[in-house]
Amino acid sequence: METSTSQSTADALDKGGILKNKIKVLKKMYPHTRSVLLPALHAAQQLYGWLSEDAIEQVSRLTGVTTADVKGVVTFYSLFKTKPLGRHVIYLCTNVACLIMGADTLEEYLGKTYGISHGETSADGRFSLVIMECIGACDKAPAMLVNDDCHFNISMDNIQQIMESYR
């Protein structure tokens, strides 16, 4: 059946069983297997850079959550990548507080400088831009994430410096 082929490719993906071991450890930390799903997906994303169909299948098999359910969770959260993105991913908030404080000019700046809009990757593969809902930093708006780092009170004065720190 289809599963047997996809399973072997998914297995080939996890050379040395790194993800398998990680999820095994995670499983011990949570009462239900379904609770392991989010940390498992983060682990997979960290390992592979993004969540391909094979990666999703693999997480599904390792956690015992159905593939459709895993895919549902992946597509619900914008922090999960369903296609390969650049080396660094910029998550820019454009909700009310950030917008008022100038998130739109930041978006325009990123578009002009790196030629990227929402969901796109720059030609050199350095940056990808994801426009996001509120990241909970309204008091320090406008705010954005680059990979796992938070940047607050961004303006046209300091954005260039921030971007330069990601090569």
Partner: peptide
């Protein structure tokens, strides 16, 4: 006990579908 379908996507684009 099958779980062949689920909500895929979010908001207006959500649809019930098999994983891929």
């Amino acid at each position: 006990g099958v779980g062949a379908i689920n909500f895929i996507g979010r908001g207006f684009d959500t649809k019930v579908s098999p994983a891929f």
